[in-house]
Amino acid sequence: MKNCFIGAAIGAMIATGLHAEEVLPTNVAFNDGAIEQSLSGAPGDPNNGRIIVGDKGQGNCVACHEVTDLADVPFHGEIGPMLDGAGDRWSEAELRGIVANAKIMFEGSMMPSFYKTEGFIRPGNAYTGEAADDTFGPLLSAQQIEDVVAYLVTLKEE
């Protein structure tokens, strides 16, 4: 079973022509709050990133941020800064750092850390109210982070 999985993964890498090596949430290197290298080892998909940003069950970024490009998704929040022009204001590495753990760049930020698995107070098992168990993982996967970053980079002011 394990061999079969590894075989499939290698197959996928060969298929995409990449030697994808995922950076674990506990092993992320921040440089002034930014992350230079891709967390998944692969490029992000901006179209999927756009879905993640608006989807309540995934990033749900619009719960706090308004994005004009996502006007088709109802109810944008007003907690964080508007994301229009985020691709002008921040580099790809900075955006990756902010999405993964905004508190490194902005101390005390209210923004949840989407690629972090340690250091929580009373971590729960998703929204059940029960304690976290051994299925506990980051809010978004490495590839989901890359997809979101790839989308944010496209948000340029005209």
Binding site: P112, S113, R122, G124
Partner: peptide, 25 residues
């Protein structure tokens, strides 16, 4: 004022610092 859970939110984050604002709907 304690920020709990994986979202690391305290009562104050929403109800002291952001009352009057929309969080999603």
């Amino acid at each position: 004022y304690t920020r709990t859970g994986q979202l690391e939110l305290s009562c104050a984050n929403c109800h002291e610092d952001n009352y009057g604002n929309m969080i999603r709907a």
